[in-house]
């Protein structure tokens, strides 16, 4: 699972450099994220713009990362592609994440 992390001011931006977060890769995603979020930051934005597919296991892994950050930090999402957006919308999980159209909008947003 390829994850690229970059600190921009007080925000940790983590880009998923994979086409999919699915049942076969969900555990590796969660483990990779756990290592990266150990870095201190005020905010964490997960850039999903390169992810074309996410299944319910991938969704569960994203939720698990959100819980790892709690209660000090929240997980913000950016760049949802159409099928990924559909999974968040159908399961109503779009209601528990702050979702930005793209990372740039997320960075300029107050969080």
């Amino acid at each position: 699972m390829s994850l690229q992390s970059e600190k921009q001011a007080d925000t940790l931006v983590i880009r998923v450099e994979e086409d999919r977060i699915d049942a076969a890769g969900a555990i590796r995603f969660k483990e990779g994220m756990r290592d990266l979020i150990a870095e201190r930051s005020a905010r964490v934005i997960l850039d999903l713009s390169r992810v074309n597919f996410l299944d319910s296991s991938g969704l569960g892994a994203v939720v698990a990362v959100m819980k790892l950050l709690a209660p000090e930090r929240r997980l913000e999402l950016a760049g949802l592609t159409p099928t990924v957006e559909k999974v968040f919308r159908l399961t109503r999980m779009d209601s528990v994440f702050t979702i930005h159209a793209a990372v740039d909008q997320g960075l300029s947003h107050a969080g």
Partner: peptide, 8 residues
């Protein structure tokens, strides 16, 4: 329930 942050 989304509010309970379900992982599955």
């Amino acid at each position: 329930d989304a509010a309970s942050l379900p992982e599955g």
